[in-house]
């Protein structure tokens, strides 16, 4: 289960519209619950952090977040008691389902991967997939429900130091 505020949810969808026809990407900061029972863990998103897509060679169907940004986001989140609980990206003119590329490149087991389909510049469907497994050999995505709440949330533009 992924819990996310309405304004964050709308903001990550809007990000996909802004970068269309290129893929957008970003980080979900928040808190994990029930870490002992990973299969049923809940991830509460309290903040989204927009990132740039470093895949200049084919940004229409690939995304990559600069690890240096991740290091800083992880550190800055920790200073405020927030953890990286997932990531989001968009699929321009492509369904909001994970691809084999998405699975092959996914390594944050226990985190949520949110995908928004953007058709002709408009965000259509947003789905979330939880990455499960005990390692690279058996990792797999599972559909997870997304609960959108009306609570006020923060959206922060990531700025390099």
């Amino acid at each position: 289960m992924l819990k996310i505020g309405e304004s964050e949810f709308n903001a990550l969808r809007a990000h996909g519209e802004e970068t269309y026809p290129h893929e957008c990407c970003g980080v979900l900061l928040g808190r994990m619950q029930d870490e002992d029972e990973n299969e049923d863990a809940e991830r509460h998103v309290l903040e989204i952090v927009r990132c740039g897509n470093t895949r200049d060679d084919r940004p229409q169907d690939r995304y990559h977040i600069d690890p240096r940004d991740l290091v800083r986001i992880q550190r800055q989140g920790r200073e405020r008691g927030l953890d990286i609980v997932g990531f989001y990206h968009s699929h321009p003119d492509h369904p909001a389902r994970w691809s084999q590329t998405d699975l092959a490149e996914a390594h944050w087991i226990g985190c949520s991967y949110v995908i928004t389909s953007v058709e002709k510049g408009r965000a259509v469907t947003t789905n979330s997939f939880a990455l499960h497994g005990s390692g690279e050999d058996d990792k797999h995505f599972e559909d997870e429900p997304v609960e959108v709440s009306a609570a006020k949330v923060l959206v922060r533009e990531f700025e390099a130091e």
Partner: peptide
């Protein structure tokens, strides 16, 4: 010093 371990984040719509 601080050492950070960060698995990569990437993907894409097409295979």
């Amino acid at each position: 010093d601080t050492l950070s371990i960060v698995p990569s984040i990437a993907g894409g719509s097409l295979i």
